[in-house]
Simulated scan of single mutants.
Amino acid sequence: MSIISTPSTKGIPAGTDPPPPPPPYDGTSPFPPDEGSTPVRDSGDRIYVGVTAAIVVLPFVGLGLAGWLLWGRLIHPVDIVLAAVLYTVTGLGVTVGFHRGLTHGSYRAIRPVRVALAVAGSMSFQGDVIGWVATHRRHHAFTDRPGDPHSPYRYGTHLWGQLHGLLDAHVGWLFRNEQSPPERYAPDLVADPDIRAVSRAFPWLCLLTLALPFGLGWAIGGSWLYGVTGLLWAGLVRIALLHHVTWSVNSLCHMIGERPFRTRRHDRATNLWPLALLSFGESWHNLHHADPTSARHGVDRGQIDPSAAVIRLMERAGWAYDVHWPTADRVAARRA
C-alpha cells in the first residue's frame, strides 16, 4: 500500500504564500513535529493518558505479582494451558488478522473468519481494530522518518537519542494522544460495517479477555482461587507478554538484527530471530518492510513463521483466497 502525504494549506489566508516546506530528512537528525497525525489537545487528553496507563501498567503489575506468587508456587497447570491458548488465539488475531490481513491485504478471508480474527486481535488489549490498522499503515507510509508514530530514530542517531528513541518506540509513543486519522489511513475499514462493529465493541472485548480466564479457571479448577490465578496468569501476564513482544517489533526490530533485503530510504527494519516464535513470525521484519503485502515474512531456510502457516491452512480449508505468497523471483529481486 502506498500512502502519499501532501502538505496542507488549510488556514492560510488567501493571497498569502504558504510556508516553505521543511528541509528533507537527513536520516540522523531528531524528527520535527509529527506529520500524518492529528494532535489532540483537549480535556480528553487526561482520560486518554489514564486509560493508556492502565492498559500498559496493569498487565505489567500483574507480571510482577505473578513472579512473586510463582516464588510461592501459586500456579496451576490449568493456568499455563489457558495462558498458552489465549496467547496463541489473541496473538494470531493480531498477526494474521489485524496485520497481514486487514492492514496489508496479504490475503482475503471469508466473512466469518475475517470477523473472528478481528475479534481475537481486539482481545489482545492493543486497541480497537480500525485505530490499530490506521496507525500501522501510517508507520509504513513514514517508516523511520518524520511522521512515523513509533520510530526509535525519533530523537536522532546519537547514543542518548537512540536510547530515548528505543524507549519511545517501545511504549512511550502510546502516551502521545496523536491519532492517525482512520478516514485517511483506513477508509476501507471505516466503510466496513462488520469491522466498525468490532471496533465499537473493543471495551467489551477487553472485559471478555479478562473474564474468560477467570471463568474458565474457576469452572475447570472448581474453586474461585483457580479463577483468580487464571485471571492473573492467563489474563494479565498473557496480555503483558504479548504487549511487549508486539512493541519489541516496533522498537528492537528497527535497531538490532540483520537486513538481508533492501527497503526504502531511511527504513531500518531488521530480522530478529529470538522473537520469531513468540511473535508468530512478525520479527522477520526486514522482508516485511521490503515486501509489505507478502503473506510470509520468514522466507529463508529455518525462519519459522507460524502466521504464514495459519494462512496456508486457511487457504487449504477455503477460508482464505487471493493469498500473496512470495515467489523466488520476487524475493531475489529484493535481496540487498
Rank of each mutant, 00 (worst) to 15 (best):
P203I: 07
A211C: 07
C206F: 12
S223W: 04
A219E: 01
G227T: 03
G221V: 09
R238G: 01
L225N: 01
F261E: 08
H266E: 03
T263G: 11
I220V: 14
R268A: 15
A211L: 13
V237I: 02
L272V: 13
L205Q: 06
L232R: 02
V237E: 03
A201N: 06
I220C: 05
D267H: 12
L231D: 05
A269Q: 09
W247R: 09
M255F: 08
S251K: 04
L242C: 04
S251N: 02
E258R: 15
H266R: 06
L216H: 01
R264W: 09
G222R: 03
P203R: 06
R268T: 07
R196E: 08
W224E: 08
G217S: 02
A201V: 02
R200S: 11
G221D: 11
L207V: 14
R259L: 06
L210G: 00
H243D: 08
A240P: 00
G227A: 02
L232A: 07
L225T: 14
I256M: 11
V198M: 04
L277V: 15
C206N: 13
R268E: 12
M255I: 07
T246K: 03
V228C: 01
V237N: 03
P203E: 05
N271R: 11
M255V: 14
H243K: 09
A269K: 11
A211K: 01
I220H: 05
L216A: 13
C253Y: 06
P203H: 10
L277C: 13
W233T: 02
S251T: 01
